[in-house]
Amino acid sequence: MKKILWLLSGIVSAFLSGMFLYEGGKLFFWFQDRRGGALVLAAGCAVFVLFVWSMIRFFGEDSEAAASSETDGSGEAVEEAGGRHLLLSVANEIVFGFAAGGIVLYLTRLQTTLLAAALGAGVVLLSVMIAGIKLAVLALGKSKE
């Protein structure tokens, strides 16, 4: 099921980033609108990160599932699997943050360059911050144990 979701995410992000990259490229090269084109291209690149991650997860899902099932139940192995799961979940948040930042950048491209870039970067930073807090809370919980 997860595998299908990652494939869907890949297809959607391929379409979305393709749309932004095509539109940005047309603005940049065809219409010679350098600023507008660069912003939309940047939005396309941000969404493209999600596409790459989706494909990595899509192809890696089988091996991850196999690795989980193969754990021998020892404390060390369970801990290792948990750590890997945690890292993947943090990476997911950052990557989706990138995609969201790209979409925000596209939607706000008609504002001033500074505002659009700040809003796009803000969304990415927010996702990184949330991932960081999540990691910190887990690390704190572990140290208490």
């Binding site: 890949g10 297809i11 379409f15 980033s17 393709g18 749309m19 095509y22 596409f51 494909m55």
Partner: peptide
């Protein structure tokens, strides 16, 4: 990722790009 998987990913992206460009146009 293996070469085959990279090729499939590239094909998916190219499909997405072409579909998006065609849709836009």
């Amino acid at each position: 990722m293996k070469i085959k998987q990279i090729m499939i990913s590239a094909a998916v992206f190219l499909w997405g790009f072409a579909a998006a460009a065609g849709f836009r146009e």
